[in-house]
Amino acid sequence: MSSWSEATARQRIAGLLDAGSFIEFLPPERRAVSPHLRELGQPAAFDDGVAVGRGTLDGQTVLIAAQEGAFMGGAVGEVHGAKITGLLERARTERPAAVLLLLESGGVRLHEANAGLIAVSEIMRAVLALRAAGVPVIVLNGGRYGVFGGMGITTCLCDTLIMSEEARLGLSGPEVIETTMGVEEFDAADRALVWRVTGGKNRTILGEATLVADSIDAFRAALVAAMQPKPLTLETLEAEHATLGNRLDRFGDMEDAVDIWAAMGIDNPQRLPLLDTDAFLQAVKGAGA
């Protein structure tokens, strides 16, 4: 079983799709590099940190993007963002079975901050347009750097999120909160706390994610079962509004995720971080988010 978190973006694509089926758009030899990084004297990757293309998954055509966390933390710059937006727009005409976003990103790349922020906004609009067209957009989040900032928002705009326990999802990273608000607000060095807040288990308990083990095979298996579009309508959003309102009322003022898990009626909630994926899913079955 090969690990998702230890794989590079390209290894994830190769492991997920049917063997040999991946065709890359704007591949590295086209050298779509960031001129802004060059201008600041920073190394600039040939693919600007994201690979995009088409392939098949169990014979079904999918479009796919994979961010490389090892390059600048997967941060979004002008070229990087435009590649993802272009892929999402392409899906509106090609209508693949799904668009797979293999995300790993700290958010906006500060070296080209304005361009990155606008690029994230364009990705968000393109995801929403694609959902309106009925093509499912699925996020796979299992990288070491997690998914934060604007890509954290983008993740929650998509139809489905598949996530490993070790992965993280949030808006502001714990280090940023600690630096800005003080260690009393968020102790970023407390790894167990960071994972209770941002990790795959808490996101699964809240109903935001489907939890899988840290293996490419596990992500693939979960994907095959998840390729249905979930329409966004006034009615579905009113239901989502009720769910989020309930969460805010019940859990918005709780000090720790463990308190939330207890309030949901999960027995011995403090043991949840120690359980493996299967035991965890068994333990939280039927809990009321």
């Binding site: 929650c156 808006l171 502001s172 909160i177 608000m181 309508t233 989020l244």
Partner: peptide, 25 residues
């Protein structure tokens, strides 16, 4: 965005994404 451990715990990004979805609909 609000820098808050409690908000992050209940998935602040989901609330912001919800607003985005509502505006798009």
């Amino acid at each position: 965005q609000k820098m808050s451990r409690k908000d992050e715990t209940i998935c602040l990004n989901a609330y912001i994404a919800h607003l985005a979805k509502c505006l798009d609909v």
